[in-house]
Computed example of a mutant assay.
Amino acid sequence: MEITRLCNRWSELEVQAVKQFDYFNLTDAQISALPMGPEMDAVDAECRRLGDVCEEALEPLGKLTPRTIEDATAMLAIAYRLLRLQEDTPWPFVNKAWTFLSRAHCPGCGAAYAPKSLPVSAQ
């Protein structure tokens, strides 16, 4: 959520820069020299840092392989919460969990627990 907040702030600053300057024809150095440049640089740096923190935190999850329905469900619950906050393709651990569920069948009726592919809205 902090990345989203920062991206919104970046957008506000960029709109100001477009209105006041020839923003899209400026170099990175010229943008940094604008009155809003230092804040834009700070927002960019913090977004990159937070992105790295997120990726590092998710790395161990990417190495997990579900062995039970509960494992797969827990992985998908984590992924769902994270994907709701951003528009991105599913991480490998989401695909692994979905693959597991699509191959697993109910012992009572034999139906698959999940379709063969992720729903379009999650892909």
Rank of each mutant, 00 (worst) to 15 (best):
P66M: 05
F93W: 05
A122F: 11
V18N: 14
T89S: 10
A74C: 12
R5G: 06
L58K: 03
A111D: 15
F21C: 07
P90Y: 05
P115F: 06
H105Y: 10
Q30F: 03
R5P: 00
P35N: 04
E46A: 03
E39P: 02
T89D: 13
V94Q: 12
A72C: 09
L83F: 11
D71E: 11
A42G: 10
E55G: 04
G51W: 05
L101P: 08
R48W: 03
G108C: 10
P115L: 06
K63P: 01
P90D: 08
D88T: 10
A57D: 13
I3M: 07
P119N: 14
F100A: 02
L101S: 04
I78W: 01
A112V: 02
L76H: 03
L82H: 15
A114S: 09
T65G: 07
N8L: 07
G37Y: 00
E56C: 01
E14Y: 00
I31H: 14
A42M: 08
Q20E: 15
S121G: 06
N25A: 05
A17W: 00
P107T: 06
L82Y: 13
A111Y: 15
A74L: 13
K19L: 07
R5Y: 09
R5T: 04
F93P: 00
P66L: 06
E46D: 12
E55K: 05
E56N: 13
T4Y: 08
P35L: 00
T27E: 12
S32D: 14
E12W: 04
K19H: 09
P38L: 01
F24G: 06
Q123I: 02
L26K: 12
T65Y: 13
R49D: 02
D52I: 00
N95L: 07
G110L: 07
G110A: 06
R81V: 02
E70Q: 08
D88G: 07
C47Y: 02
R9P: 00
I31F: 08
A29F: 07
K116V: 05
G62W: 05
P38A: 04
K63D: 10
P92W: 11
T65F: 07
D41Q: 12
P107M: 07
V15F: 13
S11Q: 12
N25Y: 05
K96C: 02
P92I: 01
L83S: 11
T27S: 15
E12R: 08
L6N: 08
G108V: 02
A111I: 08
L50Y: 10
S32N: 12
A79W: 02
L83H: 14
C47L: 02
L50K: 09
Q123T: 09
D52E: 13
A45H: 13
A77E: 09
M36P: 10
G62Y: 03
T4F: 09
H105W: 00
A72P: 01
S102P: 04
R49A: 10
V94C: 13
Q16F: 08
C106Y: 13
N95D: 15
A45Q: 14
